[in-house]
Simulated assay, not measured.
Amino acid sequence: MKVTYDANTCIHAGNCVNSLPAVFKVVDGKFMIDQAGASDAEIRQTVADCPSGALQVIETDTPG
């Protein structure tokens, strides 16, 4: 899975940063997503809780 962020849609509620600061963070004034910081399930829940829909999960094919 890949998480995408739409800056034009974001209302800056801060839910993602407050819920999973190891994944969703601001570094040098830029919003960053580090998916290694939490489990897929935790990330999916935080994305689902995004009030604006600025965060989306895109399913990717994984070999195996």
Rank of each mutant, 00 (worst) to 15 (best):
55 L>H: 02
53 G>L: 09
48 A>D: 13
57 V>M: 14
54 A>Q: 09
41 A>K: 15
36 A>T: 15
41 A>W: 00
46 T>Y: 03
39 S>T: 13
2 K>N: 08
3 V>C: 06
48 A>R: 05
36 A>G: 11
13 A>P: 01
33 I>L: 02
18 N>S: 12
41 A>D: 15
15 N>T: 09
17 V>K: 07
52 S>D: 11
40 D>R: 13
56 Q>V: 15
40 D>A: 15
26 V>A: 07
18 N>K: 14
56 Q>R: 06
30 K>V: 15
6 D>R: 15
15 N>M: 08
20 L>N: 09
30 K>C: 12
61 D>S: 09
11 I>Q: 06
60 T>C: 02
50 C>W: 01
9 T>V: 15
43 I>V: 04
6 D>P: 01
31 F>Q: 11
24 F>K: 01
5 Y>K: 11
8 N>W: 00
60 T>S: 02
53 G>M: 07
26 V>F: 09
53 G>I: 05
56 Q>D: 06
33 I>Q: 03
46 T>P: 01
5 Y>N: 05
62 T>W: 01
22 A>E: 14
19 S>Q: 10
17 V>F: 05
37 G>N: 06
5 Y>I: 03
50 C>V: 02
30 K>S: 14
14 G>R: 06
42 E>F: 02
24 F>R: 00
21 P>W: 12
58 I>Y: 02
29 G>K: 13
45 Q>M: 08
3 V>L: 08
52 S>E: 03
15 N>W: 11
54 A>V: 03
39 S>W: 02
33 I>R: 01
12 H>F: 12
29 G>C: 08
10 C>L: 10
37 G>K: 04
50 C>E: 08
